Simulated scan of single mutants.
Amino acid sequence: MRALEVVKAHYDANDRGDMAGMLAPLAEDIRWTEMEGFPCAGTYIGPREVFENVFARLAAEWDNYTCVVRELHEAGNVVVGLGNYTATHRKTGKFVDARVAHVWRVEDGKAVSFEQFTDTVLFDHAAR
């Protein structure tokens, strides 16, 4: 399976609201990094840590959190996704709309690393 297909499967599942489908393309030892300054910043190892520290946390702190990736670019085993995050902070009621870039690395049909790049200041302002 091409790297682009692996990553696209994750985003397709996201669009369907299918958490199991989102986690399925991830290797058991994936290194998933959320940018410093982002609400769930850090590096998490494995799908379980990704779910608990990223997806569950975002769902708990933000209403209508969406990630819409409009472009995917493949270069061998690396895929870059470009899109937007939108969400409303539960405590402040402030809305955020931020551009995002995701860099994926795929080996043997599984995503082995993920790194996020976004404007973390927009999220910080929405949370204050």
Rank of each mutant, 00 (worst) to 15 (best):
A9I: 00
V80L: 12
I30V: 12
F55S: 04
Y65L: 10
D15R: 08
I45G: 10
A111N: 00
C40F: 15
M19L: 15
P47Q: 03
F117R: 11
V106A: 01
G17A: 15
A20W: 05
E107M: 07
P47F: 00
E71F: 09
A59N: 09
L23Q: 08
R128C: 07
W32K: 06
P39Y: 00
H73D: 11
T33F: 15
L58D: 11
R2N: 10
F117Y: 11
T33W: 13
M1L: 07
A13L: 00
V80Q: 03
K8F: 05
E74Q: 13
L4N: 15
R2V: 06
G42P: 02
V69G: 05
V106D: 02
C40G: 06
V78S: 06
D18K: 03
A9N: 07
L23G: 04
T66S: 07
G17C: 01
G76Q: 03
G109L: 09
F123E: 07
R31G: 06
P47I: 11
V96G: 08
L26H: 05
W62Q: 01
E34A: 12
E52A: 15
A127T: 05
V54W: 06
A60E: 04
T66W: 08
A127R: 15
R128V: 13
H73E: 12
A20V: 11
I45Q: 14
G76V: 05
A20P: 07
C67W: 10
A27H: 09
L72V: 02
N14D: 11
H125T: 15
N77Q: 15
D29E: 13
R99M: 07
H125F: 12
G37M: 10
D108Y: 09
D108G: 08
T120Q: 03
Y85F: 11
F117E: 15
L4P: 02
R16W: 01
G37N: 05
T86P: 09
V79W: 01
G109S: 14
V106K: 02
A3E: 04
H125D: 06
A13Q: 04
G42W: 00
E34Q: 09
A75P: 04
E115V: 11
K94C: 08
F95K: 15
I30T: 14
A60C: 05
E28Q: 12
C67S: 14
G81V: 01
N77V: 13
H102K: 04
N14E: 08
F38R: 01
T33Y: 12
